[in-house]
Amino acid sequence: MSDDRRSVKTYVPEDQKAIWQDHADDLGMSQSEFVRTMVQAGRRGFSIDGADNPVEPDPSGSDPGGSDLERRVEAALSDGVLSWEELVDAVFDDFEGRLEGALDSLQDRNRVRYNGREGGYTLIDE
């Protein structure tokens, strides 16, 4: 990542900001890191809304999601130095595969289908 950074401002409802801050805290990120990561994730074509969160909670209940994310970061960095974008890609690559598997499973069970006309996946009503 270049040291030539620029500020970007956005305005969101107070409750949305609080949700983002809580989520950033859970992931051990600053709010700026969290927003930057979520924007990059969105640009890759999937959403992060809690249900699709790439960080799984620690079954012990302590440090929810933090240790799993830390293990992923350590594994990604074990081969050397990575930029912010490379690190985000490395951490989210695992999620992308898991998301694809989940979509395949849901489609096999006829719970989800791809709707080309609307350009995305849709839940099939029972």
Rank of each mutant, 00 (worst) to 15 (best):
D68I: 13
S78K: 12
G119C: 14
Y114G: 08
F95V: 00
D26H: 06
F34M: 03
E56P: 02
R43V: 01
E85A: 07
A41D: 06
Q16D: 12
D49N: 10
D104I: 12
V88H: 00
N110Y: 00
L99F: 08
Q16V: 14
F95N: 02
D3W: 11
E74Q: 12
L77I: 08
N115G: 13
D63I: 02
V39F: 09
D4M: 07
Y121P: 04
Q31P: 09
R43Q: 02
Q21C: 06
D79V: 08
H23K: 13
G65I: 06
Y114M: 10
E126N: 04
D3C: 12
F92D: 00
D25I: 02
E85W: 02
D3S: 15
S60I: 15
D93C: 03
P57H: 01
D15G: 06
Y11C: 05
Q21P: 03
P57E: 01
T122I: 11
G28Y: 13
G45E: 05
H23R: 14
L69Q: 08
D52V: 03
R111E: 13
L103E: 02
D58H: 13
S32L: 13
V8K: 05
P57M: 01
N115T: 14
P13C: 09
Q107D: 11
E56K: 05
P64H: 09
R117K: 00
D52Q: 04
R44L: 05
D49F: 04
D94W: 07
T122C: 05
T10Q: 03
S60H: 14
Y114K: 10
A75P: 01
P64W: 07
Q31L: 15
D94N: 06
Q40T: 03
R44S: 04
R5S: 11
E100L: 12
D25G: 00
D25L: 02
D58R: 11
P59I: 14
R36S: 00
S78A: 15
N115E: 14
A18D: 10
I19H: 05
A90I: 02
L82E: 03
G45V: 06
S62R: 13
M1A: 15
M29R: 08
W20F: 15
G61W: 06
V8Q: 03
V55H: 08
R5P: 04
Q16A: 12
R117T: 01
Y11V: 10
G116I: 13
P57L: 03
Y121H: 14
G120M: 11
V8I: 05
M38Y: 00
D125Q: 06
L103T: 04
E118S: 09
V12S: 07
A41M: 07
Q16T: 13
A41P: 02
E56N: 04
D93Q: 07
R109H: 11
T122D: 09
L99S: 07
Y121K: 09
P57F: 01
E70G: 09
D52C: 03
V73M: 11
K9F: 08
D68S: 12
W20K: 11
V112D: 06
V81T: 13
G42Q: 02
R98L: 14
A24E: 09
R43T: 01
F95I: 01
E33V: 14
V73I: 15
Q21L: 12
N53H: 04
A90V: 03
R71M: 14
D58V: 12
P54E: 00
P57N: 01
S7E: 04
R111I: 10
R44M: 06
R5A: 11
D22Q: 04
T37S: 07
F95M: 02
D58W: 11
G80W: 14
P57T: 01
G66Q: 05
